[in-house]
């Protein structure tokens, strides 16, 4: 009984999110279904960083490599007629997992600022490698021949794609909030709180951190695959460091150590972007100011309230 109010908000939000396509149809604003899908997908991608930062305290600045890498491979496979999601998606994820394992083995030797920078450098490496590879379409990116077939769903229908993305994102969020209560989750949190102590208590810290890094990368990769379905295109932007930065910023403004942080961040950032684009030719200027205001909200509140008090 006690937990009922606790569950009320997530259930209400889930219901609202599920019915969004009908609301939009009723308002005759179907155009915004694409935006809604993008928000859900970016929320998933940012959540992967909340997992990494929130559970084991690693600030990854190279998740574009996994997001974009999986996006490219899934688009590439359609060029060869691999339309089945049951085949192409796991393949793309497997590739992401291998990539994350290799990058993780190198990066996890470092911590703090060094970890931030080395993950960034690896992501750049992947970016240049893929953009320079002629088969990947260079600066133009790689078009998706057609959306994947995922019977019994029909992903060519925008609504079904939205629901699929929503279901996957919801499933990941539920899984993570459950994970936080399991022995594995506790061990990861222990590593975040005091890595040295965990090692002294007999936990093999490195493999456990690697596991967290790889799982996080797989979630980012899944988001990348979904995004290609939505945009019909894997583009170099998905691999660029600004995407890594954008995902990190989303994870941060929603609360880095909260499981729902990425969802909040993606909502705030993408809605602000859409809205500001209508108002100004330079929307990112205002987004930049918004980020500053969010980071300094404590100081701002004090200044404003302090003056009122006088």
């Amino acid at each position: 009984m006690k937990r009922l109010p606790h569950l009320l908000l997530p259930v209400a939000l889930g219901l609202f999110a599920t019915t969004v396509p009908w609301w939009l149809a009723w308002l005759e604003q179907d155009y915004y279904l694409g935006l809604a899908t993008r928000i859900v997908i970016y929320a998933l991608a940012a959540t992967s960083l909340n997992l990494l930062i929130g559970f084991s305290g690693m600030v990854g600045f190279g998740h574009a490599a996994f997001f974009g890498g999986a996006a490219y491979l899934s688009a590439y496979l359609t060029q060869y007629g691999w339309y089945s999601a049951w085949v192409a998606w796991p393949l793309s994820l497997a590739f992401t997992g291998v990539l994350a394992t290799i990058i993780g083995l190198f990066s996890l030797r470092t911590r703090g600022v060094h970890f931030i920078m080395i993950t960034l450098a690896f992501a750049q490496m992947i970016h240049y490698a893929i953009v320079a590879w002629p088969a990947a379409g260079g600066d133009d990116g790689l078009p998706l021949v057609q959306r994947s077939s995922l019977p019994p769903l029909d992903l060519a229908d925008d609504r079904q794609l939205y629901w699929l993305a929503l279901a996957l994102t919801g499933a990941v969020l539920l899984a993570l909030s459950y994970l936080a209560r399991t022995p594995l989750g506790h061990a990861w949190i222990g590593i975040r709180e005091n890595e040295r102590r965990m090692a002294a208590l007999g936990f093999p810290v490195l493999p456990m951190k690697l596991a967290c890094f790889v799982v996080s990368s797989l979630i980012a990769g899944l988001a990348g695959i979904l995004l290609v379905q939505q945009t019909g295109m894997a583009s170099p932007t998905h691999l660029s460091w600004t995407t890594s930065g954008q995902l990190l910023v989303m994870a941060l403004i929603g609360g880095a150590q909260r499981i729902t942080g990425g969802v909040k961040g993606a909502l705030i950032l993408l809605l602000a972007e859409e809205w500001l684009a209508h108002l100004s030719a330079y929307p990112h200027f205002w987004i930049g100011l918004l980020l500053l205001a969010l980071a300094f909200r404590g100081e701002l509140a004090r200044t404003i309230l302090g003056e009122k008090g006088r």
Binding site: F61, I116, G245, V249, L252, F285, G288, L291, A295
Partner: peptide, 24 residues
């Protein structure tokens, strides 16, 4: 004195402001 996450957030914001300002 803030942690690295705040520093990333703020300086990323500064990049956006700088890029848009020169375009403007």
């Amino acid at each position: 004195a803030r942690d690295h996450l705040d520093q990333v957030l703020v300086t990323f914001g500064l990049i956006l402001i700088a890029n848009e300002s020169v375009r403007w």
